[in-house]
């Protein structure tokens, strides 16, 4: 998996691509933790280019979700149909805020 970071004003954007699985979980968790600790509480995880996620990857997303909630921040996920269906399998779509594109994700924060 490839992890890229971007910033849009005070919004942190993490762009993931490839297979997001157990082998990548630790690196992704550490990157997200640093961003959440240092950031403004606005985080987008872009998984549009992710081809597969496993339960370890879901665990990383849950951890990011919990950490940002402690900061009263907000996490927005961007998914594609494959990632979406894998998240739905575990019902996690009911807690995550999920949008289909970066434009939509940025709009979530700009509305406030």
């Amino acid at each position: 998996m490839i992890i890229k970071e971007q910033k849009h004003d005070d919004i942190d954007i993490v762009i993931l691509s490839g297979r997001f699985i157990m082998a990548d979980a630790d690196e992704a968790r550490k990157k997200l933790k640093t961003l959440i600790d240092q950031g403004s509480g606005k985080l987008i995880i872009d998984m549009e280019q992710v081809t597969f996620i496993d339960s370890s990857a879901c665990a990383v997303l849950i951890s990011a979700f919990k950490s940002i909630q402690i900061k009263s921040g907000r996490l927005v996920l961007i998914t594609n149909p494959v990632v979406q269906s894998l998240i739905e399998l575990t019902r996690l779509h009911t807690i995550f805020e999920i949008v289909p594109s970066l434009t939509a994700a940025l709009a979530v924060f700009n509305k406030d």
């Binding site: 933790k33 665990a59 951890s63 950490s67």
Partner: peptide, 11 residues
């Protein structure tokens, strides 16, 4: 409950 040190949820 999962936390920062323990990420292992289960279904």
């Amino acid at each position: 409950q999962t936390n920062e040190d323990n990420l292992l949820f289960f279904t």
